[in-house]
Simulated scan of single mutants.
Amino acid sequence: MAFLYETSLIINIFDKIYKMYLYIKNMVCTRCKMAVEDIIHSLGYKLEKVELGEVEIGEELTSKQVEELNKKLQTLGFEILDNRKSQIVTKIKSILIDLVQNRDACLDVPLSIFITDNINQDYNTLSQLFSQLESLTIEQYFILLKIEKVKELLVYDELNLKEIAYRLNYSSVAHLSKQFKKTTGLTPTYFKATGSQRRKLIDKL
């Protein structure tokens, strides 16, 4: 398999510095990042940075090395993306997952502007690409992520519904409840009573 990845070359008067960027599917949480880090270190590659869905390696790997890395990643459910369109969609997902999981879906600007600022591409183009590959819109995916976060907070039972609505930037409890029922078919109260077996893994959304 021929992999598509990005490399950059920075040249100064002392040395040549190579950087390779790999985009990885199903890398959706902190534990995922740690698992990917462990694999890269075990292979002896120079790891510069790990973000959700993306790693930066401080050397240029051969195709054989990339294939070896991909095989090890696949044993844990990850996969190096070799298609540019898939890479962009994964980047959008990673940005939204981070927004919901680590920043409580707090937006100072409309979602479209937030995505555009982070991807540096026209939003209409990104939206069409996302819908084409995922069969749902960016906005719908964002809602799914928020609902899964609501489920998580309900199961933890540390916040009441009003506090959850405030934390995740819903305009009201009624707004949260309406969106929750439309997405899951259940009220938040009924979901809480039935338990966590109805939650979904983020990488399955």
Rank of each mutant, 00 (worst) to 15 (best):
F3L: 14
F3H: 12
L4M: 12
S8H: 10
N12H: 07
F14M: 07
F14A: 12
D15S: 15
Y21P: 01
I24K: 01
M27L: 15
R31F: 13
A35L: 09
V36S: 05
I39V: 15
I40F: 07
H41Q: 10
L43W: 08
G44W: 05
Y45N: 03
K46N: 10
L47I: 09
E48Q: 08
K49Q: 03
V55D: 00
E60M: 13
E60V: 04
L61S: 01
L61T: 03
L61I: 14
T62N: 05
V66R: 00
K71C: 02
L73M: 10
Q74H: 02
Q74S: 06
E79P: 02
L81N: 05
K85W: 08
I88M: 10
V89S: 04
S94Y: 02
L96R: 02
R103M: 04
C106L: 14
L107D: 08
V109G: 02
S112A: 15
I115Y: 00
Q121W: 06
S127C: 11
Q132K: 12
Q132I: 05
E134N: 07
S135C: 11
I138L: 04
E139V: 13
Q140Y: 05
L144T: 09
L144V: 05
L145K: 03
K149H: 06
V150T: 04
E152H: 09
V155E: 04
E158R: 15
L159C: 03
L159Y: 08
A165E: 00
Y166G: 01
Y166E: 13
R167L: 14
Y170R: 01
Y170S: 01
Y170C: 01
S172G: 07
S172R: 08
L176D: 00
Q179G: 02
K182L: 12
T183C: 09
G185I: 13
T187R: 05
P188N: 07
P188T: 09
G195K: 08
